[in-house]
Amino acid sequence: MDRRDFLKQIMLWSAGITTAIPSFQIVPEILAAEKPSPLVSHATGKDYHKLVAQVLEPLGGISKFVNTGDNVVIKPNMAWDRNPAQAANTHPQVIKALVELSLDAGAKKIMVFDRTCNEERRCYVNSGIQEAMETVKDRRLKYFHPDSRKYVPVDIKRGKAVRQLSIYRDALEADTYINVPVAKHHSLSRLTLGLKNSMGVLGGDRGQMHHNLGQKLADLATVVRPKLTLIDATRILLRNGPQGGDIDDVRVMDTVIASADLVACDAYATTLFDLQPEDISSTVAAYNMGLGEMDLTRMKIIRA
């Protein structure tokens, strides 16, 4: 949309000639051309704890994202009653490393939580994340089960498939929201990555998200906006996702991917599964809404 078009629409609307609410939609191609190409960093190694600091280095380190005195939400995927080797949840070492880096960066409070699919306590324990959190001896770290009173209804103004969602308050109010999904197979959305991981901050009946899932996830991403997305691909689940359970379905990749651009991060992660970004409907929907880049040729991919 250019300036003339914009003014024309405003005039028509103000004069009541058109009753259609002007949609100031930004065409993604133009947006992409205007924005500098997003940085996607990936790193490979056996020491998952070190790997996290390593992958953040090209992006400017954790201090680029976490400032002194910030309230930080670190949102892993620990939705399933599965152990770390089964690759259904984010690796506990990855979460622990992020927590420790954020603490060093001067965060005031760090919150780690997820709304699980299996029984809450079993998921926290079996994912190994609770145990990893217990070893961090710092009172600024809070890991807890979501409190049902703290979901607030949020209007999704730019939403195409949903108008309102109930979202966890801490996720909305955080200074820094860090999205830490695990990359894995999912039968409906093919893969679950960064966009899908945000479902863990939703209240209410999440099953209905599944009808037109891709667009609804993109709608959700208009209000829950991670400053940093770090995809855990240390081991990836190739089949029987999203919860797996069979070690034969797991491939060890020893890789993590990070970017400030959620869509770009998801787009790059598809290549680990020999898929294309276009194969994932949420990635396409989010790109079309101008939420990030999905064209692999237009991002700066750095091996850290």
């Binding site: 299996n118 039968s187 099953g207 599944h210 029987n240 359970g245």
Partner: peptide, 16 residues
């Protein structure tokens, strides 16, 4: 004709 399969997602047996 609406996509769903929430049931398949939650089915816990390793071979679903």
């Amino acid at each position: 004709g609406i996509p769903c399969i929430v049931c398949e997602e939650h089915c816990p047996t390793p071979d679903k």
